[in-house]
Structures are given as C-alpha cells and as structure tokens.
Design a protein around this nucleic acid. Sequence first.
DNA 1: AATCTAATTTTATATTTATCTAATTATATG
DNA 2: CATATAATTAGATAAATATAAAATTAGATT
Lengths: 197, 197
Amino acid sequence: MQLEKIVNYHKALADPTRLRILLLLSEGEMNGQALAEKLNISQPTVTHHAAKLREAALITERREKNTVYFAQNRYFIQQHAQASLQFIIKEGGKQMSEPANENVKAAVLRNFFAKDGRLRQIPAQYKKKLIALEHMVEQLEPGRKYTEKEMNEFIKHYHEDFATIRREFIMHQFMYREDGIYELNPRELWTRWENVK
Amino acid sequence: MQLEKIVNYHKALADPTRLRILLLLSEGEMNGQALAEKLNISQPTVTHHAAKLREAALITERREKNTVYFAQNRYFIQQHAQASLQFIIKEGGKQMSEPANENVKAAVLRNFFAKDGRLRQIPAQYKKKLIALEHMVEQLEPGRKYTEKEMNEFIKHYHEDFATIRREFIMHQFMYREDGIYELNPRELWTRWENVK
DNA sequence: AATCTAATTTTATATTTATCTAATTATATG
DNA sequence: CATATAATTAGATAAATATAAAATTAGATT
C-alpha cells in the first residue's frame, strides 16, 4: 500500500537523532562508532536508528574490513519527499503555464534559441536564464543517471560553454551531482511557484 | 531550533490516520464529524489528530455556527517539505550568485505588490519572500507594542491570509511575540547583509 | 588459537502516543 | 430557559519506540 510507505518515510525522519545522523552524513560517509561519538549515544542506538533509516531506504551501507560506513541515499530521500507531497497535495500537472508567463517564455525561446534549436547566448537576466535552462533540462530523462561526459555532450548540442551551463543546472537545483554522476531533481524542487499565479 | 521544527513536521505526517485526513482534505474542506465517519474513528480522535496537524501548520480551520471546517494549508505543507529536504541534503545554502540585489528587490516589489499596495501573493522563493515581508514590516513602528488583533488588521491591508504572514514575521525574526503581544525586533536582527552592499 | 575491534542482537525500561469512553464546553435554536 | 449539535478536554489503556547495558557475532591481526 502506498500510504504505508509514506508513513514509514516520515516515521524515519520523525526523530531528532535520525535527522542528526542524516545531517552528519550530508558531509560524507561515516562509520557507526564515529556517529555514536559525535552524537553522544551508544553504538546499539546507532544500529537501531540505522536500521530504521535503511528500511526507509534513506541510507546505504558499505562494509570495509569490520567497519560499516553509512551514507545518504539522496535519490530515495528526494524520491520519497516528492511522492509524499504528491500524495497529500494531489495536483500532478495542475501548475500549468499561465498566459502572461507563456508570453515571456515564448519570447525567450524565440529570441535566445535559433531555428536549429541551439542556444544563441546565455540570457543575462535571471528570469530569462532560468527559462532557457529549464527548456534544456526538460529534454533530460527523469531518473536517469548521466556521467559528466554525457552531460557535456548533451549541453554541447545547445552551446559550446557546457561548463557554465552544467554548473548552472546544479546551482539552480535543476539537477544534483554526486561523485561525478548527474541526475535530474524532482520537478517540485525547481518549479518556480511565483510564476504560477 | 530548526531541527525540532522539522521533526515535528515529519511526526505530523508519520501516522496513517493523519495522512488519510490530509488526503480527504485534498478534495476540499471537511468538518470533524464527516472526517470521523469517513475514517471510522471517534470524534475525539479527530480532534486529537487535528491538533497535531494544526501545530505543524499543515491545516487551517474555519468555524461556522458550531461546526469547524478543516482545510489543507498547502503553502506550509510545501514549505516544510522543502525546508526538510534542504536541511537533510544541504546544497540549498551554498549557492547564490544572482544579479544585483537591488534589481531583485525592485522586481519583487513591482511583481508581487499591486498598485494599491496590496500583496498579490506570497512569494514562494525564500529570498523573494523575505523581501516582501521586509517591505511590509518596515511600515510598523519600532518600539511600539501591537496586539494580535492589531497585527491582523495591519496585515489585512496587504493580504487576507494574515495568519500565515503573522507567523512568518515571527519565524524570520522580524518580530518578537510574548503573551500575544507583538513587537518589532531591532533592525540589526533581521537586516540581511547581502542586501546592503 | 587467542585477541582485538566494530557492529549487532537481546533484554529491560521509560516515554510517547493513538484510541476510546465519559464529561464538559461552545454555539445555535426552539 | 431548555434542548440539540458539534467539538474539545479529561482520564484510562494498550501499543510503539528510543535508549542503554549485557551478551553475541563478524571479521581482522597477531
């Protein structure tokens, strides 16, 4: 049942100790003892919480010799956050582009993109830049993982300055990067609500 | 403390009955009895869960005669989901690099406030929201004490959802509240240095 | 094999909390 | 004022769970 999964996701995050564990892991992986020490709790307690976080797929583990390293599972953290929101709020595609914005958007697409689809230049104005970035990013597959090389190739179809654009994708949270692997963020994270009206 | 707020948000959603309440409310407002019947639980249980949801600001209430209608507070549901994600995942705080702030400020004032001075809608993006809040709060007298009723009246000049905005004033430390009395915080407490420059 | 380290499992305890019934409060209406 | 309806509060109970101490397991090193 879907409801149960969402409950478990929130249960996993509904505890200060577990949140602090995730917070520590946001800076990189860590083993059990280190966590116990940092948080001033016993090791069994760490195991207990790790089990809960693992059940909800919010962390991953890696064993090296006899120490276990924990790490965030960002993909599922975001995935579940999105699923939960959608479950509660129930409006999948309800944020349609509204006429006024449609004009701005159409103008940007017309003025900044050539007939062959390439980006003539990167818009300097914030809002227009975001529109351009969004237009490109929409061609990427949700859920698929891209290497940096693949990202460069993809962006080069639009513009030579792939490094800048790749960085902007991250900066504006269209994508997230981990260990050189790029992946689309859930749409909710980058949809700009003030444009919705 | 921020952590505590996030824990409470997830606690509020970490229960199947409460999720089902929100699910029912996604289709529109509903009173307590209707909820109790739909969910096959007693009315006190509904009250209990409603209190939890209210504490986390996930629902709003409206009294008509002697029946209370509950409704989703979508704004805060989304707000908290986002805050939680950013807290865990980071990556929200370390970016920036945007056009000159005075431009942003002017744009926010132009886009979010109507000619008559009213706030068209509450900006969803953090930075823009702060600009809008600051704009309103600057009309209050430093040192003067305001009752909650006065605050509501003041805010209603800008927007009907005075409860949300009043709460945001506190949350972002523009104001300080004690025993239902509101007072402006010293400017140094809320001036954002990126804006000064 | 003996030992050491890190993690887990077991067991027990104290706290939290979801739920109900009964009693009370709030509001409206005859 | 008396009555009716909806909601809340109080009190009680059962279930869930966070934590630690003690015992055990897993793997590595000597």
